[in-house]
Every structure is written in C-alpha cells, then in structure tokens.
Simulated assay, not measured.
Amino acid sequence: MKRILLVIVLAAAALSGLAPTASAAPPGGGWEPAPSAPADYPAGARCAFAIHLEPVVDKVYGKVLKTRPDGSAALQAYAGPLVERFTNVENGKSTLADASGFALVEYHTDGVQIWHVTGPVLVGFQPNRDNHAPGVFILDGVYTLKIAPAYRTVLSGHWAERDLCAAVS
C-alpha cells in the first residue's frame, strides 16, 4: 500500500507542478539548485575500464519537503534537466545520458536513502555488492532504490535500462 501511495504522490506531484519541467525556469517556493559534480571512477569500480562523468546540462533543483527536529532533511524532491557526458577514459568513446527524472528521497538517520523515482536517473552499481549487474545504467520508469553506505538495491518497480558501460566499450 505504501508503494502504491508513493506512485500516486509522484504522479500528483508531476501533474500539480511540484516537479519542474525540463524547460521550466528556476522554480521558486523553496526549490534550490542541486548541481552534479564531475566524477571519475577507476577501472573495475563500475565498468571494466576507467570512466569520467561530466554534466553538460544541469538544471536540477531540490526542495526539502520534511525536516527532522535538528533541521536536517528527512524527505526531499529533486527534478529538472540533467544530461551527463559518460566517457570511457581508456578509449575516449563517450555518450550522452539523459538523467532528467523526478525523485522523492527519504533520508534515514543510519545513512540509508530510499529513492522513489519516475523517469530516467543515472545509477552506478558496484561488483559483488549490489543486487544488479555492475556498471552504470540509466534506469527509466517508475521504481524504488535503496542506497545504503555499503550497497545499492533496486527494491521494486518497472523500468527500462541503458547500459552506459556497454555503450562506450
């Protein structure tokens, strides 16, 4: 029932304007820029080769929807256009990855994050630690991720995926 409710909340948020569209101007009402930083991973950490991620379009915004008594975020929404250039450092091949999805993120005090996602998001999985094949993928659909300090798990949902490691190998 909780998952059905979250899907309804995600759909209602998108329809009500809580989620800014890809072409929206910077939203007001508590939305703050949430930029992505470039990232590098050595061979074997995600793909069999070293990779570099660089945002080329980054207009993602976040909005805290619920806080804890100490003021830290307990629930936050993220939305907006994000396109990353994903590069195989060893052969120079690259591809663009659209990760412009909408997510509601629950932040737990033990460091666990539960991501309720609609649309495409870029997710990296590590060998021998996660419940998904290792690599970096665009997951596009409606799904839930559990991101813990030591592992990532796709909990439920329906999605299509694009294997970015395979795209540039």
Results as ranks from 00 to 15, higher is better:
Lys2Thr: 15
Arg3Glu: 08
Ile4Val: 14
Leu6Tyr: 12
Ala13Ser: 13
Ala14Leu: 06
Ala14Gln: 12
Gly17Ala: 07
Gly17Cys: 08
Leu18Lys: 05
Ala19Phe: 11
Ala19Tyr: 03
Pro20Ile: 02
Pro20Lys: 04
Ala22Tyr: 07
Ser23Met: 12
Ala24Met: 00
Ala25Asn: 12
Pro26Tyr: 01
Pro27Glu: 00
Pro27Met: 01
Gly28Glu: 02
Gly29Trp: 01
Trp31Tyr: 07
Ala34Leu: 02
Pro35Cys: 00
Ser36Lys: 04
Ala37Pro: 01
Ala39Met: 09
Ala39Ser: 14
Ala43Ser: 13
Ala43Trp: 05
Gly44Tyr: 10
Arg46Thr: 11
Ala50Met: 07
Ala50Ile: 09
Ile51His: 06
Pro55Leu: 00
Val56Thr: 11
Val60Phe: 00
Lys63His: 08
Thr67Lys: 15
Pro69Glu: 03
Gly71Arg: 10
Ala73Leu: 03
Ala73Val: 04
Ala74Leu: 09
Tyr78Pro: 06
Leu82Met: 02
Glu84Lys: 15
Arg85Cys: 03
Phe86Pro: 10
Asn88Leu: 08
Asn91Lys: 13
Asn91Ala: 11
Gly92Ile: 07
Ser94Glu: 03
Thr95Trp: 00
Leu96Glu: 05
Leu96Ala: 02
Asp98Pro: 09
Ala99Gln: 08
Ala99Asp: 03
Gly101Tyr: 09
Leu104Met: 15
Leu104Asp: 11
Val105Asn: 14
Val105Tyr: 11
Val105Gly: 14
Tyr107Lys: 14
Asp110Ser: 04
Gly111Trp: 00
Gln113Met: 12
Ile114Pro: 08
Val117Pro: 10
Thr118Trp: 07
Gly119Gln: 09
Pro120Glu: 05
Val121Cys: 04
Leu122Thr: 09
Gln126Leu: 04
Pro127Val: 07
Asn128Asp: 14
Asn131Gly: 09
Ala133Phe: 03
Ala133Asn: 12
Ala133Pro: 11
Pro134Tyr: 04
Tyr143Trp: 05
Thr144Pro: 07
Thr144Trp: 03
Lys146Pro: 02
Ile147Arg: 15
Ala148Met: 02
Ala148Arg: 05
Pro149Gln: 04
Ala150Tyr: 01
Tyr151Asn: 15
Thr153Trp: 01
Leu155His: 07
Gly157His: 10
His158Phe: 10
Ala166Leu: 06
Val168Arg: 11
Val168Gln: 09
